[in-house]
């Protein structure tokens, strides 16, 4: 049997698109991560999605539908008034949008979305010191009237005001000294850090297992994913491991 050029061209196209079509029909073709956050397994929020598992790749539309936060309020909270389609805006793009704030040490990014959604929906969430919210987001949360005293105090210290016309001189109000944002190559435990990275940064397996209170999984496992799966508070593990990492 011989193959000529025209036949080869057709075979390639058929195999490629036939394969993609067949796997799509079988629900095996996916070009993005599964966007289903983990659920709380206990407490009064059992069965509802955990805001701590919101990823940077989620769009505001997805966050809105998964956590029942009106899209309009999300847009106002993060000052996306100039964005053509807020539903398509990705959480991870907040960092670039508010780069001038980040340069000053006040990071508004995916962590801010998690915090806003958690406080908006009343879900349990450990507030993290290096996360800030824009003033409109805080106004929305305050207007709901459901925040605790501690949460209100925390927000007073973690509110940042962004002036669009003059991004370089974005001003802040009522805030503590900012937490320095992590650079790419810095040894900072983040949402996408694996156990292997922590090992590489000089923390021993025993120390990690001590922090986890149990056996460490395969080193390539993402720490946050593991914590969420096991029902462990990621932020406390993160802080414990961070403290063990040599500066």
């Amino acid at each position: 049997m011989k193959i000529k050029s025209w036949a080869m061209g057709i075979i390639i196209l058929v195999l490629f698109f036939g394969g993609i079509g067949a796997t799509s029909a079988l629900n095996l073709w996916s070009t993005t991560s599964t966007k289903v956050p983990v659920k709380f397994t206990s407490g009064q929020n059992a069965g509802s999605y955990n805001p701590a598992d919101i990823r940077g790749s989620y769009t505001f539309g997805e966050v809105s539908s998964l956590f029942n936060v009106p899209l309009e309020e999300l847009g106002i909270a993060f000052s996306l008034n100039d964005v053509e389609d807020v539903a398509l805006f990705k959480n991870k793009d907040l960092e670039a949008r508010y780069e001038s704030l980040k340069e000053q040490g006040y990071e508004v990014g995916n962590g801010s979305v998690k915090m806003f959604v958690a406080l908006y929906s009343g879900a349990p969430y450990t507030l993290e010191d290096d996360t800030y919210l824009l003033a409109p987001a805080v106004d929305i949360l305050k207007a709901q009237g459901t925040l605790t005293e501690d949460q209100l105090k925390f927000l007073e210290e973690h509110t940042v005001e962004f002036i669009e016309e003059n991004t370089k001189s974005a001003i802040t109000k009522n805030i503590e000294a900012p937490v320095e944002p992590a650079k790419e190559d810095e040894k900072v435990v983040k949402g996408n850090t694996t156990f292997q990275e922590v090992l590489d940064w000089g923390v021993s397996k025993e120390e990690i297992e001590q922090a986890l209170g149990g056996k460490m999984p395969n080193p390539l496992t993402n720490i946050r994913d593991f914590c969420l799966k096991e029902g462990i508070e990621f932020s406390s593990i993160k802080n414990t491991l961070q403290a063990k990492i040599a500066p």
Binding site: I11, I12, L15, F16, G19, I20, T23, L28, W29, S30, T31, T32, S33, N192, P217, N218, L220, T221, N222, D225
Partner: peptide
């Protein structure tokens, strides 16, 4: 070993890998 993909890689890469390997 872990049951997950390398960061930024998705199931579609696996599908394409098999198609290209067959070819």
């Amino acid at each position: 070993t872990v049951g997950t993909f390398v960061q930024k890689i998705h199931q579609s890469s696996f599908v394409l890998m098999f198609i290209v390997f067959l070819m």
